[in-house]
């Protein structure tokens, strides 16, 4: 766990998050809260309130996030992917820590949303 969450890193994190569009930002925030859990593409698109198809979410957004090493994708079966935030990323691990320490309530909300009926 990173403990030296100094101002400079938080500044860089804010700048990074601000540079992303709302879909990508929502993905990173949701995934940071539920870390270390991973979600499937369909779960993710429900979690961030994405209205399009999860396939287009994958091609247009998730693959780009993966290219920039912000998220990691494990292919479980040909159709099922496990998506989680990349905790090795120099800034996103700060985000994950922040969510872990200060985001307990939001985390509960996200996890409740993921529960199956």
């Amino acid at each position: 766990m990173v403990t030296d969450t100094n101002d400079a890193t938080v500044y860089e994190l804010i700048q990074l998050m601000a540079s992303l569009n709302d879909t990508r930002r929502a993905i990173l925030l949701a995934l940071a809260h539920i870390y270390p859990r991973s979600v499937s593409g369909v779960q993710l698109s429900r979690l961030i309130g994405y209205s399009g198809k999860s396939r287009s979410l994958y091609r247009g957004v998730i693959s780009h996030l993966q290219e920039n090493e912000m998220i990691q994708i494990d292919q479980l079966t040909p159709k099922l992917y496990a998506i989680r935030i990349n905790n090795e990323h120099p800034l996103l691990n700060v985000l994950v820590d922040l969510c872990k320490i200060h985001g307990k309530h939001s985390r509960k909300m996200y996890l409740k949303a993921l529960e199956e009926e």
Binding site: L16, S19, L20, E67, N68, E69, M70, H89, P90, L91
Partner: peptide
């Protein structure tokens, strides 16, 4: 490191 910190690869 610089690339990742600015959202690039």
């Amino acid at each position: 490191d610089v690339a990742l910190r600015h959202g690039f690869s």
